[in-house]
Design a protein around this nucleic acid. Sequence first.
DNA 1: GACATAACTTACTCGCGCGTAACATTACGC
DNA 2: GCGTAATGTTACGCGCGAGTAAGTTATGTC
Lengths: 213, 213
Amino acid sequence: MASVGKRLPRSVREQQMLDAAIREFAQHGFHAANMDAIAERAGVSKPMVYAYLGTKDELFVACLRREAGRLLEAVAGVVDSDLPPDQQLWRGLRGFFAYVGKHRDGWAVLYRQARSREPFASELAAMRRAMVEVIAERLALALAGHGRSVPAEELESIALALVGAGESLADRLVDTPQEDPERVATRMMGAIWLGAERQLHGEVWRTHQDQSA
Amino acid sequence: MASVGKRLPRSVREQQMLDAAIREFAQHGFHAANMDAIAERAGVSKPMVYAYLGTKDELFVACLRREAGRLLEAVAGVVDSDLPPDQQLWRGLRGFFAYVGKHRDGWAVLYRQARSREPFASELAAMRRAMVEVIAERLALALAGHGRSVPAEELESIALALVGAGESLADRLVDTPQEDPERVATRMMGAIWLGAERQLHGEVWRTHQDQSA
DNA sequence: GACATAACTTACTCGCGCGTAACATTACGC
DNA sequence: GCGTAATGTTACGCGCGAGTAAGTTATGTC
């Protein structure tokens, strides 16, 4: 890893520690992740980790904050509110998959680990809710442009489904390095956006074609 | 919980233990879950749990197996392969949300816990892959009925997105007891199926409307 | 009503791994 | 170059909770 014996300023060591921690958390999960192993990965001894980033929980939170920040940047940083809503969605989606492609371990921790460990789970859940809200708003805007409107509740369900679909595809992306994030984004926009748009314009899929129950 | 002092046959105690374990795992996560607490919930002392269901890991696996079995039953048990593909999807989806609605803790464990703990994660991932395959097949069938065909790779992406959307909606369902599983299923079919169908019939969402890079 | 066996408990061991106290060394300001 | 603060290490305490050994009471059976 880092060449031995070299002394480094705190700011860069902290980043190395976060890198190391995220790898470890991603590979073994929070519980099985070993503080000694994290220290070793960072090319440093354990007490340094505690000195700089605190306990295991605090370290985990630090990882989450950094990755959540990067994700937010990747998504919100590329969206221009002057664009038409579907283009905003497209930009956000592309930014999202780009982040996942570049920081696979980070995404794995956010998605696979953080959801199961309180109190981080609530923090992440809040972020997710915010994302759903933003998407629902864009959908509403897209609708308004066509002179239609749809119950907010339904918009949120669609937005939530979009988010879930994105996470699912992101999850595959993590395990398949050869996959191109751009292509995934395009596929998703094709598969999902068309459906949302269609429903938003008033088409319904009719349950009662089903004969029974 | 269970009235004190009563002795019960192994088969029923085991079910109580699994119920208890699933509640505990769902509430605290695998790591924070306490074997003594599980035993107490089941109205029994810890060595009984070890005698009947083995170590913590084995207990967890037992939980997963039971819930995965129930889920499979709820989904595959209601699908009739003589029905048209979209109806098969609809039945499966309804069964899925019905399971989640009835066994919220079970779903929480499957979805939020199992994904982060090897080696269970791989087992669940395999099950998920199988589900994606089945859905992709139905999509292909639906297509064939309209005389079209689409690359298998693309079909799988759509199926994967469907699964992710379902999981996401299921996850909300877990936290909102007033929500009706049937309604969630209908919404999802509306929001997603229409889009998949549309793409399957050859429509594409055009990336190059985007002006910049 | 004995006796076998399944159901159940109390009361421990013990190791893993988080977290820290105490100490060492290098860089840098002045 | 010398003090001092930041970077770094070794070696250990210690609690928590998984897992168990040994013993106890109910229950069904002939």
